[in-house]
Amino acid sequence: MSVYRPQFEQALRLFGRASEAMKARGLSAPVLVGGAAVEIYTSSALNTGDFDIVTPWQQEFEEELRRLGFIRPSGRGRATRGWIHPDLQLGFEVVARSLLGGLAERERVRLIDLGEDGVAAVISVEDMIADRMGQYASGAAPEMLEQARRLFALHADVDRDYMEKRIRHESAGEYGVADLEG
């Protein structure tokens, strides 16, 4: 798995271990979204500083993070919503209870085998592109168009029909797959 930068790979392995612990409790595995998913789909060509996670089991997931050595930063000038592993300085934060508000198809989630560290569940590349296009369409994140285009260029095998539907929904009908090609 050496396609990722070492710090990111270590954090991904910790995520896999936390995911396995959740499954051992009889709970569904958390799913990576956001920048961590982008970094996975670009093989670390685009880097992130955090792992955004979707799980309906926030308290239980945070308990597992604590067991793995994560701490909640506190004090002046520190973000307090997420968790950081002191050795990695990458933040982990639960950002939602359901995958894109329940609109992403769970069966499209990609599973990454991390060997002895378990399996990491990652939002589909189609849904990640649609999410980026939605953020771009909002006007609050103009840089997301370039991220969506880079992801699209790297993944020619996407389900274009599904992605068209998801982009149209996330962008309130304003954008579609054709906007990724320009």
Rank of each mutant, 00 (worst) to 15 (best):
S2T: 02
Y4K: 00
Q7F: 02
F8W: 06
F8Y: 09
E9K: 04
A11H: 01
F15R: 03
F15H: 05
G16H: 02
A18Y: 02
E20P: 13
M22N: 06
R25I: 04
G26F: 05
V31K: 10
V31P: 08
L32N: 07
G35M: 02
G35R: 06
A36G: 06
A37V: 04
V38P: 09
S43W: 03
S44K: 11
A45D: 15
L46K: 14
L46S: 13
N47I: 05
T48D: 09
G49W: 06
F51G: 06
P56M: 00
W57K: 00
W57P: 00
W57H: 11
Q59N: 08
E60M: 07
F61Q: 01
E62N: 08
E64H: 08
L65D: 03
R67N: 09
G69H: 06
F70L: 14
I71P: 11
R72S: 11
P73S: 05
R76K: 05
G77M: 03
R78F: 07
G82C: 03
W83C: 05
I84P: 02
H85Q: 04
D87A: 11
L88I: 14
Q89Y: 13
F92S: 03
E93R: 07
V94A: 02
A96R: 04
G101T: 15
L103I: 04
R106H: 12
V109G: 03
V109W: 01
L111I: 03
D113R: 02
G115C: 09
D117L: 04
D117P: 08
D117M: 04
V119T: 13
A121F: 00
E126K: 09
E126N: 13
E126C: 07
M128V: 14
A130N: 10
A130Q: 04
R132I: 02
R132H: 05
R132N: 04
A137P: 04
M144A: 10
M144K: 15
E146Q: 13
E146G: 12
Q147L: 02
R150Q: 15
R150V: 15
H155F: 05
A156C: 08
V158D: 05
D159H: 14
D159S: 02
R160A: 06
R160N: 12
D161V: 15
D161E: 15
D161T: 15
M163N: 06
E164G: 11
R166N: 10
R166V: 11
R168Q: 12
R168D: 00
H169K: 14
A172H: 13
G173N: 09
G173D: 12
Y175T: 08
Y175W: 12
Y175M: 10
D179M: 13
L180P: 06
E181P: 07
